[in-house]
């Protein structure tokens, strides 16, 4: 008899799941946040960005574009995005080391960029300049996901010898020198070069396989030989003098094996 008394209760519990669910539209207002660079959903937003002028040739400035995205509705007009500099995390000086522009989410778009012009100064050869930006509220947007509101740019003009140079990369590129490193980056048009063992290559992160290194080696050897012999002209912004030596005074000629 006790069981029979429980039947109505059971029905109530079971049929409560049959209630029609009404999906509510997003009502959090228009918000904006920095956007992860990778399209891989498993890679989370990374706040820190590094840029080196080393290996880029004779450029004097670089426009850094930091991607942003909105939460909320797309509008038919441009909407400004408010950015502030976090003084506690920043040692770069506006107008000297960088120039910020007024950026917007364009009309009918859900994405845009914060544009920061980085300026190459002599100080960058010894110091690392840091600029920390933060999205703040304005008349168009509230801040978005709190984990994606800050972006910190470190920029400099220095090269660091890849850790795997002697162990793996020397077989393709020979003995290390800073100028050879700069030449490699400039003519391969990549900001960084690192060796990756098989299966761990990642061109996004500038980690290259042995096969890639072999192609790089042949290409660089041919280009350098033709530049040294005047067969081809240096490309635009080439900062080097040919024949390429590893030092301005008493240097050795740079060669690739």
């Amino acid at each position: 008899m006790k069981i029979l008394k429980l039947i109505p209760v059971l029905f109530i519990v079971l049929f409560s799941s049959c209630e029609k669910e009404v999906v509510q539209p997003y009502a959090g207002g228009d918000r904006v946040q920095f956007r992860p660079v990778s399209t891989n959903p498993n890679i989370r937003y990374i706040e820190n960005i590094a840029f080196s002028f080393a290996g880029k040739g004779a450029i004097e400035e670089h426009m850094m574009q930091i991607p942003i995205q909105i939460i909320g509705d797309i509008r038919e007009h441009d909407r400004k995005v408010a950015i502030t500099v976090d003084p506690e995390k920043t040692n770069a000086i506006e107008g000297v080391d960088y120039i910020l522009s007024e950026d917007v989410i364009p009309a009918n778009e859900s994405r845009g960029y914060i544009n920061v012009k980085l300026l190459k100064t002599d100080a960058l050869e010894t110091d690392i300049k840091v600029l920390s930006l933060r999205i703040v509220e304005n008349e168009f947007f509230k801040p978005g996901d709190k984990t994606q509101l800050a972006s910190t740019i470190s920029f400099y003009n220095q090269l660091v010898k890849p850790v795997d140079w002697d162990a793996y990369m020397a077989r393709y590129f020979g003995a290390y020198s800073k100028r050879k490193h700069e030449f490699i980056l400039f003519y391969l048009e990549i900001p960084e070069i690192n060796f990756a063992i098989a299966g761990q290559e990642s061109k996004e992160n500038h980690k290259y396989s042995g096969t890639d290194m072999l192609y790089f080696q042949i290409r660089l050897r041919s280009i350098l030989s033709d530049l040294n012999n005047g067969v081809i002209a240096p490309k635009e912004n080439d900062p080097f003098t040919y024949p390429l030596m590893d030092a301005d005074v008493n240097g050795n000629r740079i060669v690739f094996p």
Partner: peptide, 10 residues
């Protein structure tokens, strides 16, 4: 095949 960069020379 993937061909290497061309051989240097004039």
């Amino acid at each position: 095949f993937i061909f290497f960069h061309y051989a240097s020379g004039d």
